[in-house]
């Protein structure tokens, strides 16, 4: 059980996330929706501790995530894998090594630093790649892959961590409609087969309604909606998205207007 208690984050005078209260049941698929700059990204990054909260507490079971340091923090990060909008792979390393990054926390440091991976680690990494039909690309350099393939590699890396939670930060915002489907299906399969909790930032309301079993709407850093997808009416959505509402509500899950998405500026991560 992941619990956020009054979590806030300020960047200078700007409040990115404002006293968020949230409880996530294991095995659920939670969609976090809202317009760009609503604080979705910062929220997810705080759970993985890429960003530290200014206030409040994050707990998981009996672990106080906010207070973790060193070895314990790294162990926590291994338990909640992160997937990024820009994939964040190491372009110059091959695909398999990128997936093996997910084993770094489990493997002994002295061996992994000189790339002497254990047979088990290799097997797990390969099995993760096979899950998404890209094991054949194992020896290729990651930056030679298409966006959709790279994101699947990133999901394989996350799966190789054998995490309890996967935090996906706008995983499809840089992809075309076909790859959007593939990536969202992959996340859904992981969620259903292995019971891994998925918390996913999404811009598209249709996708969120289609894949998630719970929606959390954010606006200006606050949670303004929390409930089942069906209970998110168009009125609520209009409130959530403001001027962008027309873009978001009208579009179907299969045609998320790739061009429009590419033009949209990526979620601002305040420095």
């Amino acid at each position: 059980m992941l619990v956020l208690e009054g979590v806030s984050r300020r960047f200078g005078a700007k409040v990115a996330v404002d006293k968020v209260e949230l409880t996530v049941v294991p095995g659920s698929f939670v969609g976090v929706i809202g317009r760009s700059g609503a604080g979705k990204s910062t929220l997810l990054r705080m759970i993985n501790r890429l960003v530290d909260p200014s206030d409040g507490r994050i707990r998981c079971g009996d672990v106080d995530v906010t207070g973790l340091r060193g070895r314990e923090l790294r162990d926590w990060r291994a338990r909640c894998a992160m997937i990024f909008q820009q994939f964040n792979l190491v372009g110059r390393l091959d695909v398999l090594t990128n997936v093996l990054m997910g084993r770094l926390n489990a493997a002994p440091s002295a061996k992994s630093l000189v790339r002497l991976w254990g047979v088990e680690d290799k097997a797990i990494a390969l099995a993760a790649l096979e899950q998404f039909d890209i094991a054949g690309l194992a020896a290729q350099r990651a930056d030679s892959l298409s966006g959709g393939q790279q994101q699947r590699v990133a999901i394989a890396r996350a799966l190789a961590q054998s995490p309890e939670i996967i935090l996906a930060d706008e995983p499809i915002a840089s992809l075309d409609p076909r790859n959007t489907r593939i990536v969202m299906d992959a996340l859904q399969r992981i969620n259903r087969t292995y019971g891994i909790t998925v918390i996913c930032n999404l811009h598209s309301l249709e996708l969120a309604r289609g894949y998630c079993d719970r929606l959390v709407g954010m606006a200006a850093g606050r949670v303004v909606f929390d409930g089942l997808p069906e209970s998110l009416t168009d009125d609520v959505a209009r409130e959530l998205y403001g001027l962008e509402a027309a873009d978001v509500i009208g579009e179907g899950a299969t045609s998320p207007a790739a061009a429009g998405w590419g033009a949209r500026s990526p979620v601002a991560i305040p420095a």
Binding site: G27, A123, I124, A127, E130, A138, S162, E164, G195
Partner: peptide, 23 residues
């Protein structure tokens, strides 16, 4: 859920022979 999430690892290791044959 920890027991369930370990399933992926367990499956992968169980299928090691097959993986080794394929790659």
């Amino acid at each position: 859920s920890a027991t369930r999430t370990q399933r992926f690892e367990a499956e992968a290791l169980a299928g090691l022979r097959g993986l080794a044959a394929r790659h």
